[in-house]
Nucleic acid binder design. Structure first.
Lengths: 233, 233
DNA sequence: CGTCGTACCGAACGTTGTTCTATCGTATCG
DNA sequence: CGATACGATAGAACAACGTTCGGTACGACG
């Protein structure tokens, strides 16, 4: 048993991937520790292969991110398609947006990447179509329909970005919960001069321990109420 | 004259910075070529100094970005404060949001960073306060006020993110204008099966050559209409 | 004059995305 | 059956990045 590489027994074995496994493991990395955790080296290690092999499946990190995003958007899309549907297009629009937002809550990294490329043939485009089809049931101009869907997507993105940002180190460490972190923010706000910051004082209790989903639903309801008004129904 | 460093005449001169100049040059880099252009090395070169010197002013790139953002948000804040103001709080809210969005149109990189840290003592917090103060003039609960401002900020962020993404290489090269790029998208959409994508076909003409500011204003008007409804006025 | 704190900087470190080049295994073909 | 082509894999190297380390210049102060 010298130090030379043994060529028999447990010798170096080649890894055998597939587009599917690459994407699945990429998503797993993103899910476990967010966007910074997805590196070619970490991914290669998980796949039991070399770094350069991944480049056989994707041409760049951007493409990897796009494909990984599209991968999970496929699941979101079928969730949306499984939605019952009602006689109120605006209620249906709301249900779809809530479903989409729920997926982003479960995968915060999605917020930064979904809808970046509403590329031809992507699941994002199909989702966009699904949303838009509800506006076809409303009494609107094409112009208004286009803007309505943009607005709904905008609300989702706007709320998602808030959530998508990496939590500070102390939360990842488990040294502090999210509530503690938000609470410390609230505390600092309470220290502010009430003369200079009347509004901040007004809402600091609401901010403290607030729920992201509530916040999103409220914003969504506002634009949907505006849309209902616009459709004159 | 040996190869030794000359210590007289045009010998190496030390650069003398200041927090102000660091932030100004950082913003200049961001303005000229977007977020990827802001590197410590590029910044040091512009300042005529060494890379490590920057660390005397900021502890990390994150802090550099935060301070640069806050720097320009100061200007945005005074723009907002210079706004005339009317007897309709919702109109005022709209004017503020439009001003904010305008600043992001001029500096697309802002979209990704502003409101990331509504830190204590930041200009973003002051802007948040300014927005919120308008809701104090409306007949709402504190809960509703908090969500109203979140919604308005969400609309701005949602539209800004759309714009904030780096344009593809060919536009930076000048090989294609933005209109051409969007037009090619529209063309691809027109190729889609109208049976499968009725909505995309409905709005493809709107998408082609659409204006980001229009899109934003429409989304904003929808949530403001919803808000007006909620305030019962 | 010596010391201390501020301001500064070159060089190096570790990590990242990416490319180059070489290899293995298997199907195909003369 | 051997040669060849191609799909698939991988180690090593590269450039660029954020960051750290050690040290230098210099005015202020005792």
């Amino acid at each position: 048993m010298t130090g030379l590489q043994s060529r028999s027994g447990a010798g170096r074995r080649r890894a055998s991937h597939s587009m599917e496994s690459v994407l699945t493991e990429a998503v797993a990395l993103l899910d476990e520790a967010g966007a910074p955790a997805l590196t070619f080296r970490a991914l290669a290690q998980r796949l039991g292969g070399g770094v350069a092999s991944i480049y056989w499946y994707v041409a760049s990190k951007e493409e990897l991110l796009d494909r990984a995003t599209d991968h999970v958007m496929g699941a979101v899309l079928s969730d949306v398609e499984r939605l019952p549907g009602s006689d109120d297009p605006i209620d249906d629009l709301r249900a779809m947006a809530v479903t989409l937002f729920g997926a982003i809550v479960r995968r915060p990294w999605l917020g930064a990447y979904f809808m970046r490329n509403v590329d031809v043939q992507g699941n994002s485009l199909r989702l966009y179509e699904k949303l838009g089809r509800q506006t076809l049931r409303l009494n609107l101009t094409a112009h208004q329909r286009f803007h309505a869907v943009s607005a709904v997507v905008g609300v989702v993105v706007g709320s998602a970005v808030d959530m998508g940002q990496e939590p500070p180190q102390e939360i990842l460490d488990g040294a502090a919960t999210r509530e503690e972190f938000l609470g410390r923010f609230a505390e600092a706000w309470r220290e502010l001069d009430p003369e200079d910051f009347p509004f901040v004082h007004e809402i600091v209790d609401e901010f403290d321990g607030h729920d992201d989903v509530d916040q999103f639903r409220s914003a969504l309801d506002l634009t949907l109420a505006g849309l209902r008004l616009q459709a004159g129904a």
